[in-house]
Design a protein around this nucleic acid. Structure first.
Lengths: 215, 215
DNA sequence: AATCATAACGGACTCAAGTCCGCTTGTCAA
DNA sequence: TTGACAAGCGGACTTGAGTCCGTTATGATT
């Protein structure tokens, strides 16, 4: 697999060193506190003032550590996010080695992403709240960017391998396939429409299958 | 065309009669004022207080006429929305009469929707701001609901006509095909990715084509 | 025309996100 | 050890959405 995905999620300021001890301590304290409150009352029901107070810290401090609620939520998912990425990269490497087609890899990726999204809807909703265009905070885009690059890369590879027609608009299709996985749409499908994970995954597979060259 | 789409967008309180003169007058006044301010400064840059003040009306009045900014924006699009719906229904009737396939009708509908969406992105962003689940205000869902029913209906008809495989999950696919047309995603594709309307439309056609039964 | 129930009005108020800025403290170099 | 200063801290403040409620206007009834 020649395609390289050089993206790492860069957390707020994670130089490691050059951070003052109290800053690092507060960061962890805030994360732990937020995690606890979110678990108790739900992400949406907890506001920033609550978190600051529960952590015994000023609002200014809270906002110095995390630009906004979205950034805080992203930081809370960081570990699992990295793990997901690494697992996926690993699996795709294995699949490639075993001659699994690119489209099948894509389907596998989307299926995994469906489960990952489901497991983190509340946080993801908060992270994506402000929409994609307004969001200046570049790091908030990174998760989506990584997903996009992955799907895009797999489609490109599929195209080169002749699995899909050579004139397909890979750049657009990657976006379109990921659109139903945006947190609020996904949540709507789950909660209002009552779709199961399998059903959603299956539906996405259908769309991917449709790209396959008709033999 | 046997499928019926009984939905009409019900505006805030549009019984017509049984509305006090001052209420009606204020409603129009507010709409005109908002339209003007939005045109001058952009939807996002104008806040509710601005509108109330410019209209020479209290905030309470503003909120009595329109539940929130989203409802106000929806009301501003109402006429064009209805026109779009009617035009579409009309065209689809014509196409059906001329033996145009359901999938082709669907493609036509999506193409038109792409242009419609593009023409109204700022208002649509505001309308869809709160996400789909939180949104209690049922009427705000109506536009999306109508679009969903249309796509869903066309897919069903296509399935019955044997244009697509009989086991496809029409309910899910309708949602998935509309997902990239949600205002914020659409706006991202247009403004950040720089996709042209033709390109987006083309991409959606590709996805629809993929559903077609391989002969 | 006067009465009155009811809807409409206005603006002060609440609530949450995010900013500002004067004070404090950890770090590093002398 | 000390002292300067960048970084961190806290909480008052700003901003905008949306609510509440006492006052006022409308129009149906008599």
């Amino acid at each position: 697999m020649s395609r390289s995905i050089p993206l790492e999620i860069i957390d707020d300021q994670e130089d490691g060193r050059s951070q003052r001890r109290d800053a690092i301590a507060n960061r962890k304290l805030i994360l732990r506190t937020a995690e606890k409150l979110f678990a108790e009352r739900g992400v949406h029901e907890v506001n920033m003032a609550d978190i600051a107070q529960a952590a015994g810290v000023g609002k200014g401090t809270l906002y110095r550590r995390f630009t906004n609620k979205a950034a805080l939520c992203l930081a809370l998912m960081d570990a699992q996010m990295r793990e997901f990425q690494n697992t996926m990269l690993e699996r795709m490497r294995t699949m490639s080695a075993n001659g699994v087609s690119r489209l099948e890899q894509l389907m596998h990726f989307l299926d995994a992403l469906v489960h990952f999204t489901d497991a983190h809807v509340p946080l993801l909703c908060e992270i994506q709240r402000e929409g994609m265009v307004t969001q200046d905070e570049t790091s908030l885009q990174l998760p989506h960017f990584w997903q996009y690059m992955t799907v895009n890369g797999l489609l490109r590879a599929a195209r080169e391998a002749g699995e899909i027609a050579p004139d397909l608009d890979v750049d657009y299709l990657a976006d379109a396939l990921l659109a139903p996985l945006k947190a609020d749409i996904f949540r709507y499908q789950r909660e209002v429409r009552g779709f199961s994970l399998e059903r959603i995954s299956q539906g996405l597979q259908t769309l991917v299958s449709g790209l396959r060259v008709c033999v």
